[in-house]
Design a protein around this nucleic acid. Structure first.
Lengths: 152, 152
DNA sequence: TTGTAATTGACATAATATTGTCAATATGGA
DNA sequence: TCCATATTGACAATATTATGTCAATTACAA
């Protein structure tokens, strides 16, 4: 493969990447607006989701690693959420310092309220898309993500 | 359509959105690493690309609007690039203050160098993907982006 | 057990992004 | 022309994110 020119797939993925950047920005904005009334932001919501959907209570560092973001950012937001009674720390039987993060009942209600806003929003957003095409798009996105994780 | 539960497409798009967030992070990271040796970052590179690929010289505010980002951020980076001789401002015959941004020869060389790094990188990244699937993914991403722009 | 490397939360600092305001300019209608 | 509205670059004030360091802890191999 010559190095100076794009392959067909390379050209197409280049365009896809630029679209992913733009979509990411729009989604961030839309998410912020959707849950602003609940006192949430996209960043907070995403962390709540990670905690809510984890199979078991996990540490801040674990969540950061899983989300692929800096652990300091997650720590800062989780500490805020803890002060607001939205999450709480549980002792970790396997680690004295790395406490496990869980939603409080108040946090669970807040997350449920966010979901209640997201459901009609995403149902409307996606109503004209074919499930097959969405699945294909997801496969491509996940493949690229996996490749990047391997390469990085 | 009931509001309390996800449609099939809604559920699938919810998963897709989370994947887009993760991929965006990985791409940002990979881009930073790819062009770091050139004194570029993902953000700078993206702005250079917008300037390079614009059909004609445009103002900072125009680029920010097109990219869907804050105009202040673009302004800050463009001002830096201008100090470094990578871009320059041209007088705008239609507006006294809104100067038009163009690449200098040095800037064009820098952008070409970034592309020279990106080509083999993206060719390798995409080598096992089918052009059809990439096209489908791009269509879905673009559709979502367009819908969000309309809604917002 | 002992030593080495990795993980973790806390903290500090710098870089970047966000938000709001202002005056200059441009646009379009009355 | 005149006026209201929108756009633009500059500037300032916060907020958020990124990066590096540290000590405590853990994991693991010798």
């Amino acid at each position: 493969m010559a190095d100076e020119e794009w392959t067909e797939a390379g050209k197409a993925v280049t365009a896809l990447v630029l679209d992913v950047f733009r979509l990411n920005g729009r989604l961030q904005l839309a998410g912020d607006r959707l849950v602003a009334g609940l006192g949430l932001t996209s960043a907070r919501w995403q962390i709540l989701g990670a905690i809510a959907y984890a199979e078991r209570p996990e540490s801040v560092a674990w969540h950061a690693r899983t989300m692929g973001v800096h652990r300091q950012g997650v720590q800062r937001i989780v500490n805020e959420l803890e002060k607001e009674g939205i999450v709480e720390f549980q002792p970790n039987p396997h680690h004295k310092r790395a406490h496990l993060v869980v939603l409080t009942p108040k946090g669970q209600k807040l997350f449920d309220a966010a979901i209640a806003l997201q459901v009609p929003w995403v149902n409307d957003l996606s109503k004209d898309l074919s499930p097959d095409d969405i699945a294909t798009a997801t496969d491509v996105i996940e493949y690229l993500k996996k490749r990047l994780e391997e390469m990085g």
